[in-house]
């Protein structure tokens, strides 16, 4: 359940960095995703309408982002423009505070989130892995909190798994691990930590074989979710034999 809608896939796919529409379509199908992020740019720099045709015919829902916005004012205006263009009030809210790391400006982020919730947007907030900030965003009415594992496009995985687990405990709304996923084990870890879903783009779109990586991510998300529900064994310092000692022959 996300923003009042039910999804059977827990993998959200970004389209950024996709090398071609053919690759995008194969990756979308392999991933099983039902929610795909898109962006708005000046018409002369934008993809032709065919990208949306590909997404439409695969039955995925669009999630516009506010990528590139640096202030709450820009992000709110971009969200309103996206609502016009895409006909959806859902938005992946990101407000960037640093060019090199693309880390969120959390002060502007919270300000924008409050304004957008007041305008009846369904806000999915891209944020740091700070559990206190996550709670503030949830309290502001965000439909989901989306902490980064590591900087966008870095592929460094989840640098602070403990914070992700704490954030999961801190809020009632869905937690979506967003940014930093490099490979399938990162996505599985996110789910094992209790995240409700994973959002990734570069890990698939810039992989050598995006379609195969999309399938890997799908199975990793499913595997991690199952493992979380199954309850892992406690970690031990030393071994605990799995084969019984009783009945061991003397040889």
């Amino acid at each position: 359940m996300l923003g009042g809608e039910t999804f059977t896939s827990r993998l959200l796919l970004g389209t950024g960095g996709v090398p071609s529409l053919e690759v995008l379509e194969r990756a979308v199908r392999a991933s099983g995703t039902q929610l795909v992020t898109v962006a708005l740019r000046r018409v002369e720099a934008s993809a032709s309408g065919s990208m949306l045709e590909v997404l439409d015919r695969n039955g995925v829902r669009l999630l516009p982002n506010t990528a590139g916005c640096r202030t709450a004012r820009e992000a709110v205006l971009t969200s309103r423009l996206a609502r016009e263009a895409f006909g959806t009030s859902w938005v992946k809210l990101e407000v960037i505070g640093d060019e090199r790391t693309l880390l969120p400006d959390v002060v502007e982020l919270l300000d924008a989130a409050e304004q957008l919730v007041a305008e009846d947007f369904t806000v999915l907030a891209y944020t740091t892995d700070d559990p206190v900030l996550g709670r503030r965003l949830a309290d502001a009415g965000c439909a989901a909190v989306m902490p980064l594992g590591s900087p966008i496009g870095s592929g460094l995985g989840i640098r602070n798994p403990h914070n992700i687990a704490l954030l999961r405990e801190a809020v009632e709304v869905p937690v979506v691990l967003d940014a930093g996923i490099g490979t399938a084990s990162d996505a599985a870890l996110a789910m094992e930590l209790g995240c409700d879903a994973v959002l990734l783009a570069s890990a698939v779109t810039r992989a050598r074989d995006p379609e195969r990586m999309a399938l890997a991510m799908r199975q990793a998300v499913e595997g991690g979710r199952l493992a979380r529900g199954a309850g892992r064994i406690p970690r031990r310092w030393h071994a605990e034999a799995s084969t019984p000692m009783h009945g061991l022959p003397e040889l």
Binding site: V38, L40, A201, S202
Partner: peptide, 10 residues
């Protein structure tokens, strides 16, 4: 005036 259209994005 800004005239905007969809494009790929994370």
């Amino acid at each position: 005036v800004e005239v905007l259209a969809p494009t790929a994005g994370g």
